[in-house]
């Protein structure tokens, strides 16, 4: 070895302990997960693709997967609708309002997931805020069932994941050249038109980045899904948990978690690659 390459590899010496840990406690387990999913029975007899065929031929399992992906898509869309106005106001405001919005966005990020989910149980519950308000205003005759519904779960996840969308959208709005909107304004475009024809197309990379973050986070949000959605809505995370810990069918739960991982990361990478190829605008980083 030349002295230069020796010193170059010596610089990597402090990386060795972490690399060893990752090999033993991250790479190895994931390889084992793939291997286990290839066994036909929970007793580890016979290698085959039986677990994957079982998933593909079972309408219930397929529905659980599509429901979960659809939930992620829906929540991501809802956060997008909330995030743009918030970001527009942020960019147009002075230091006080900017600090306030930053604080409000950071607040849920720093509060524990269980706490945030618990708040939604209080808000949506039978004696919760929404029901009390609607009853006392006389708008509803009887308390409505909001908890343990799909809509309630979408609403709760929208609030819980909103920061993940707001941060990239604000970032790309901040990088947008102000001269462009001023030029459109000077040429007589209405503000709504400026938003649709100038701001939205140019900040699309940030919106897509946020959409993907929220999509993945909402699809995998076990706690919120089980507590606000309730036991009757079965989604992939609780399905995997039930098959692994409840039924102890390891090959099937391994296959389930790999299918779920591939579906979520596959969609994220596909949309990310497509947007890098076809969407032009300010950098979202």
């Amino acid at each position: 070895m030349t002295p230069a390459s020796t010193s170059a590899s010596r610089q990597l010496l402090p990386v060795v302990p972490l690399a060893a840990l990752f090999f033993a406690a991250f790479v190895l387990p994931l390889v084992a997960l793939v291997a286990i999913s290839l066994f036909r029975t929970p007793q580890f007899a016979e290698l085959s693709l039986a677990q994957y065929l079982r998933f593909l031929s079972d309408p219930f399992s397929i529905k659980v997967l599509t429901d979960t992906l659809w939930l992620g898509a829906e929540v991501a869309l809802a956060t997008l609708i909330l995030a743009y106005p918030l970001a527009l106001v942020y960019v147009a405001s002075g230091p006080f309002m900017r600090t306030l919005i930053t604080f409000l966005i950071m607040l849920p990020l720093l509060t524990s997931t269980v706490v945030r989910t618990f708040a939604w149980i209080v808000i949506l519950g039978r004696d919760g805020i929404v029901n009390s308000a609607m009853l006392s205003l006389g708008l509803w005759q009887a308390p409505a069932r909001l908890l343990y519904t799909w809509e309630g779960m979408v609403l709760a996840l929208t609030q819980i994941q909103l920061p993940l969308m707001a941060l990239p959208v604000i970032n790309s709005l901040l990088r947008l050249d102000g001269n462009l909107t001023r030029a459109a304004e000077g040429l007589g475009a209405s503000r709504a038109r400026i938003f649709i024809t100038v701001i939205l197309p140019l900040t699309l990379p940030g919106a897509i980045a946020g959409w993907l973050l929220v999509f993945a986070a909402a699809a995998t949000a076990f706690i919120t899904q089980t507590l606000v959605g309730g036991g009757r809505i079965i989604l992939m995370p609780s399905y995997i948990y039930q098959q692994a810990v409840g039924v102890q069918d390891w090959p099937f739960s391994a296959a389930l978690s790999l299918i779920f991982t591939l579906a979520v990361t596959g969609i994220v990478f596909a949309i990310g690659a497509l947007s890098r190829r076809y969407v032009r605008g300010v950098d979202a980083a």
Partner: peptide
């Protein structure tokens, strides 16, 4: 997704 990792460690 961290659930896959958690399950793999358990196994």
């Amino acid at each position: 997704p961290a659930m896959a990792f958690g399950l793999s460690l358990l196994l």
